[in-house]
């Protein structure tokens, strides 16, 4: 019996040490990447290429999801608000929920599962097939050449994707409530414009998306770079990217919201 307890405690200790090591490796990796970003910034076409893969190819899922989320919000909001006779406030509801919360969070979650997992798998496979080692032997630093451009492309793409998500979502809400149900168009927009503040709502939403973009792509590139160079290693890393970055998005969202909107009406 005592032997089993000792084994159990040892298991816990092993996990803790392992995760602290991992955290250390991740921070070290992140600092290295930032230090070496200058090289990839000077060759911006590398980043443009990656924006194509992370940003442009994520467009369809972002736009379609945004449209549907906005339409559902409009429908649900209208159903509830019309009981109180204030269905013209549905524009406010749709816009505020999208700009403050749903736009950044849902777009980041979609981005993590679409682009984040692709980044991890790609870097992991490059490692498994010795492409990174080959690059190293060619005197080209893989962090500067492969990792940093993908990171910056993700950081640049994310705010644009979230903005498109929100804009399309509001359009979806407009379609359902104004065009289909027949809420007054003038009050839809004017109530929205009265309630949505540029500085507080939109700028804070954009700040959130930037933070999420950094978190998701940093996790994705690290998991790829740190993946064991085997098929199981890469698939495990891909799964971890999606899980870790989703949790990171939701956790960070709570912290940011608490700082940004606390004490506000």
């Amino acid at each position: 019996m005592p032997r089993r307890i000792v084994l159990g405690i040892r298991g816990v200790g092993h996990r803790v040490i392992e995760s602290v090591w991992r955290l250390g490796r991740a921070s070290h990796f992140f600092m290295l990447m930032l230090l070496k970003s200058g090289i990839s910034m000077r060759r911006f076409h590398l980043i443009i290429r990656e924006i194509y893969f992370t940003g442009v190819l994520s467009l369809i899922i972002i736009v379609v999801s945004g449209l549907f989320v906005g339409m559902v919000l409009g429908l649900q909001g209208y159903e509830t608000l019309q009981k109180y006779g204030s269905e013209s406030a549905v524009g406010t509801l749709v816009a505020l929920s999208l700009v403050r919360e749903l736009g950044p969070v849902v777009a980041a979650l979609l981005f993590a599962s679409r682009a984040g997992s692709a980044i991890t798998a790609e870097i992991g496979l490059m490692k498994a097939t010795e492409q990174l080692a080959a690059m190293e032997m060619m005197a080209v630093d893989p962090i500067a050449r492969v990792v940093a451009p993908r990171f910056w492309a993700g950081v640049i793409s994310m705010p644009f994707l979230a903005a498109m998500f929100s804009a399309v979502g509001i359009f979806g809400g407009y379609l359902v409530t104004v065009v289909l149900i027949g809420v007054d168009e003038g009050s839809f927009w004017s109530q929205m414009q009265n309630a949505v503040d540029f500085r507080y709502d939109i700028v804070n939403g954009v700040i959130k998306t930037c933070v999420f973009g950094v978190a998701v792509t940093a996790i994705a590139v690290f998991e790829g770079y740190d993946a064991p160079p085997t098929a199981e290693g890469v698939s495990g890393a891909t799964t971890r990217t999606v899980v870790t970055s989703s949790l990171a998005i939701l956790g960070l969202d709570f912290v940011l919201t608490a700082f940004m909107f606390r004490g506000m009406s």
Binding site: V99, P159, A163, M164, A167, V196, D197, F198, D201
Partner: peptide, 13 residues
């Protein structure tokens, strides 16, 4: 464009 729409049409910019 989407950011501008949010700022001008949705927000009070």
């Amino acid at each position: 464009g989407a950011l501008l729409v949010l700022a001008l049409k949705v927000g009070n910019m």
